[in-house]
Nucleic acid binder design. Sequence first.
DNA 1: GCGATCAGTT
DNA 2: CACAACTGATCGC
Length: 455
Amino acid sequence: MDTDITGDAETDLPPPVSDDLDDNGFPILPPTAAATSSFADDFYRSGIDWSSLQLQAAPPHQRNPAAGTKAKCGGPLVQRSLFQAWGIEKPPREEAAQGVRAAAGVSSSSASHSGTWSGRKRRWGGDSEENGVAKKPATCPFYKKIPGTPFTVDAFRYGAVEGCSAYFLSHFHYDHYGGLTKKWCHGPIYCTALTARLVKMLLSINSEYICPLELNTEYVIDGVTVTLLEANHCPGAALIHFRLSDGKTYLHTGDFRASKSMQSHPLLQTGRINLLYLDTTYCNPKYKFPPQEDVIDFVVRTAQRYLKKQPKTLIVVGAYSIGKENVYLAISQALEVPIYTDASRRRILHSFGWPDLSKRISSCDQSSPLHVMPLASVQHEKLTKYLETLNQRFLAVLAFRPTGWTFSEAAGKELDLIKPSSRGRVTIYGVPYSEHSSFTELRDFLKFVRPQKGL
DNA sequence: GCGATCAGTT
DNA sequence: CACAACTGATCGC
């Protein structure tokens, strides 16, 4: 039977569901006596879209009712191994530990997000609740709230969040802005200027709610000092650094790709992060991928090679709405050709305000051998049709899918071992170009940041 | 018609 | 395969 996680925040213990252990041995809901309010419990109970995680302090202290409240009892954080941090002994199977993902592709619903962990479907969030609990959007999960502040991050699908007077948006990807519509009226939205432009342009949010912030600049918002840092994820993506009036410092990474250069930021060098909200998409050593520059270099060399053999080759790069720009920008620069893409993407790319990108964008598909398309279009059948469309201007297609995760061991370490898939005149390369941190990058970042070491 | 949610896709 | 980030279909009003 379904339980309602949308219930009031005061509901400490939702009634147990039928199958209450997932494949990894996590309690879906604490079996009665399980007084353990472990991180995993809270995590699982809080629903959906794990957009960022809070690495909580060591001892699973006294059960903390209302997982979502700001009564975060400020327990110190100790970062141990990533697995230990969530009480995962050892991944029983391969997919075991991968999970602690932020922002799983789990949609807004309050249902079945455990799919990412176990592949088993489960429902536990029916809105139509029997016992008279008013139906409302799923409650904002605890890990999207910043304790001790009236802030949430990437929490737009819960209507007005109680106690929230400022809503932060880490970056403009659907799984993070989901819920934002032109009817938004629950409070100011803080984000980078670039993200702000996209929010306004594509979601028609009323300007009065949009509050752009410059990177690397301190703002005092509701008594909290807030600084946005470059996240190295997609254009406009930011890490959010909070300094509370009591001196506590929190870092919310959103989605990010950790890098050495990040470590030179003054705010991260103080060693004074009390609480870390981490993007752990690839929180498993099995995910390896090379530095972005290496992948870009590989893509460029490959494109050049194909063009040499067949000058009438069309190069296609797949991309989501935003992200992966550097892949096609690099090709454009190396081959000295413009970038063609459709009108809607042109509008988005121009809105970045990046002259080096804007000046290379073309609106004529015949004039450029470099086309950017939605990832979903980068498949043999669609590209074959597309090629016909272009009417003899091109004789072959070389396409890249920057996928971000590596299935083949090979691609992780030796790019030149990547085998393309060819059908007829269409060749497709999956390349491990990631805009999330790899496991080792995550580990190095944690070692550097050392959330609350020694308190 | 619109938003919210679910299912499906690469 | 598994993953992020959609996209489209269906539901409820």
